[in-house]
């Protein structure tokens, strides 16, 4: 079965790029998630419950128009960040729980695993933002002066959120008390991003066009730094 008739060894190895391997992992995770809905259920349940609770409770108060842009940005990002924290660790934790970590270690290179999991988490976050952000705007009657700036902040903030949570998820996957550890480790890492994203969304809503773009640039820089550092650090986390 293995050697050819001429006796030449026909081992098939190493013809893939990191991106090919990452895409294979991403597609497999999507397929698994589509069938099990572990992460999607956790994230969406939290997000929808929080959104409904916020819209009902805030609706009872009269918030001054001048404060709306800031307060709504804070609430939106609290919902997005904590929804992400409720489910994004699943990408690595389910590998550990199912005992598939080792077979993945033997099959794919560490950086490809990180990228594949990052793509998967970004897909989940993208879906979350597509549902929650328009729903938040509608329910809260959130008026946004500069939609392009607002959308850029949501996208760059989402990318940062995905990058930060993916590396933390890898770090906590083999620990006990993963849930608490995931939130505890993610929070300080995500705090600078949250502050930036809140400022950016506030400025987009308040019509401070030129003041808002530096926040988008800051978030993009955070994404680049976080992904670059993770690609260097992940092999150390991934190996025993």
């Amino acid at each position: 079965m293995h050697p050819t008739k001429s006796g030449r060894w026909t081992t098939q190895t190493g013809s893939s790029t990191y991106l090919d391997e990452a895409i294979a992992i991403w597609l497999r995770d999507l397929r698994s998630e589509f069938r099990t809905r572990y992460a999607v259920n956790a994230i969406l349940m939290f997000a929808v419950t929080a959104l409904v609770a916020v819209s009902f409770s805030i609706g009872a108060f009269r918030i001054a128009d001048a404060e709306k842009s800031f307060l709504y940005a804070v609430l939106l990002w609290i919902i997005l960040v904590f929804s992400a924290l409720s489910g994004l660790s699943r990408s690595f934790v389910k590998e550990e729980e199912a005992g598939t970590m080792d077979v993945l270690r033997l099959s794919a290179r560490p950086q490809a695993v990180f990228l594949g999991k990052l793509f998967f988490n970004l897909t989940l976050l993208g879906a979350l933002e597509l549902i929650i952000v328009p729903a938040f705007i509608l329910l809260m009657e959130y008026e946004i002066e500069f939609p392009l700036l607002f959308a850029s902040m949501i996208i760059s903030g989402g990318l940062g959120l995905g990058a930060g949570t993916t590396i933390v998820a890898a770090m906590i996957a083999q620990a006990s008390a993963r849930g608490a550890l995931f939130s505890a480790l993610s929070f300080p890492l995500l705090l600078p991003l949250m502050i930036t994203a809140i400022k950016g969304c506030e400025r987009a809503a308040a019509g401070m066009h030129t003041a808002g773009w530096p926040e988008v640039k800051l978030a993009v820089a955070y994404v680049i730094i976080m992904i670059t550092m993770s690609l260097f650090l992940f092999p150390l986390v991934w190996e025993e």
């Binding site: 013809s15 090919d20 391997e21 895409i23 497999r28 397929r31 099959s107 490809a112």
Partner: peptide
């Protein structure tokens, strides 16, 4: 995953 899906994944991830 099914058996085929598992094998397809391991082929793709190993290049």
């Amino acid at each position: 995953l099914t058996a085929f899906e598992n094998l397809e994944f391991f082929c793709r991830v190993r290049g």
